[in-house]
Amino acid sequence: MSTDPEKPTEQESDVTRREFLGTAGAALVVAAAVPGVAVEGQTARPAGTPSRPRTQIRLTVNGAQRRLEVDDHWTLAEMLRDHLRLTGTKLGCERGECGACTVILDGKTVYSCSYLAVWADGKSVTTVEGLAKNGALDPLQQAFVVHDAPQCGFCTSGQLMSAKALLSANPAPTVAEVHAALAGNLCRCSNYSRIAEAVVAAGAAGATRRTSGGGQ
């Protein structure tokens, strides 16, 4: 929870891969959508933009409190990716059928592609960007690296969020418990056994740290 609430998660001035691709590949500037978000009560709607119903929400994103004005029809994924630039949350199917967009909302996993941004009002959202602390990977992420859990990597952030929610509720799960908890996350590379291995290892390592009194 060390993140400065006033500091954007990514440097706004940096040219992201997304913007670069947008400007390089087509005349459209993808980042043009970003000023549409008014942070801390600003109304940054450009003149001439058709009126869209908007709602002001307060939420915690990866430990930082945010106040945002969001379009009523935005999904949480849309808000996170397109307007907060938290593109670690991936969109696969857009239909709640793949799990790539999984985030943790007040301790429970949801598909951010199928959840309204306005519903996050008053809630706490954790995305994959919220796992690492002070530049150090979360032990769960480290276990994914050690156990080669990601192959192409597209499903990884979603898998991590389901695994993180599981470990919070059940710190040392069995393989069967991991498979059940991660059942809502597809891996097209079909690397399920390595993913489960990594989560079990992270749980076991956490248990060791706890009994030895060290670590988190």
């Binding site: 709640g96 799990g99 999984t102 429970k108 996993t109 949801v110 598909y111 199928s114 959840y115 389901s162 059940a180 908890a181 059942a183 809502g184």
Partner: peptide, 9 residues
């Protein structure tokens, strides 16, 4: 029904 994430919602 469906998946854990869907049942949560």
């Amino acid at each position: 029904v469906a998946s854990p994430q869907i049942r949560n919602q």
